[in-house]
Design a protein around this nucleic acid. Structure first.
Lengths: 141, 141
DNA sequence: CAGAATCCTTCACGATACTG
DNA sequence: CAGTATCGTGAAGGATTCTG
């Protein structure tokens, strides 16, 4: 296939073709999908694990996710080519999920955001406390 | 104040104190906030602009955002200490927004995700086409 | 085990109108 | 200009039940 573009070439082309700030742009919708709590957690879970993970592994790792959301998220990630799904027809069935090359190219970025949240939680909490205190002090309702 | 921790120390502490995979964890909620389309776009807009931006600038830059969502997003970012809001009491009033130091420490990560979306849109679109075609071929409804 | 299907509630978000 | 306030709706997402 004619995917003989370097990363630089693709980036160059993308810079002219797409702009996620435009709501009609496909990348806007893609960004919306990526900006999803469950997407972040699923990708981060797969990224932080050696080898593939089973459906139930993911459900256990990501506390609080419902079957519906887990399946739904997995399906959309699979469709977008970020995650590969492998079915082993044993009894009972075994299904494994793992990041594709494309998925791996994204996972680092998403994990970085997740790590930022964990690392800077205290500062954000401080900011909130101060902000709320100031609002009370100045007589806001 | 007693913020005399190195980044490494903070990270080390955070690693034990927080885990965004746990739904009771505050960082889980923080990650949910960060995983928001409008947050990404607002932060990216501010990051990709020299100096502060006015409310109307942001509204113009981020096509399709309603006043409600823009205001709401800005307020939450301000409360979390990621964005600074400056009011100039002229007539008419002038309000400027800019990233704080904390906000700047995050913006790079969010911009990276947005750029990823723009850069890899084609590959995702391809994956979708193939995935959908395969589903049809194998006789899925 | 790994889902699919259904129901049902909540609330996120847009549209609209008003204000200092 | 930079918001606030209110209302209405579609859609997200949880709980539950069923299946290969």
């Amino acid at each position: 296939m004619a995917t003989t573009m370097t990363a630089a070439q693709r980036r160059e082309r993308a810079r002219f073709a797409y702009d996620a700030f435009l709501k009609e742009c496909p990348t806007n919708q893609l960004l919306a999908r990526l900006s999803d709590k469950w997407v972040s957690l699923v990708v981060a879970a797969l990224a932080g694990h050696e080898g593939p993970m089973r459906y139930s592994d993911l459900g256990r790792k990501i506390a609080g996710v419902s079957q519906k959301m887990l399946t739904q998220t997995l399906r959309s990630l699979e469709r977008d080519g970020l995650v590969a799904r492998t079915v082993t027809p044993s009894v009972p069935v075994r299904v494994d999920y793992e990041l594709t090359a494309l998925g791996r190219s994204l996972s680092g970025l998403l994990v970085a955001v997740k790590d930022w949240a964990e690392t800077h939680m205290d500062e954000v909490a401080d900011a909130r406390t101060k902000h709320d205190a100031a609002a009370v002090g100045s007589g806001q309702k």
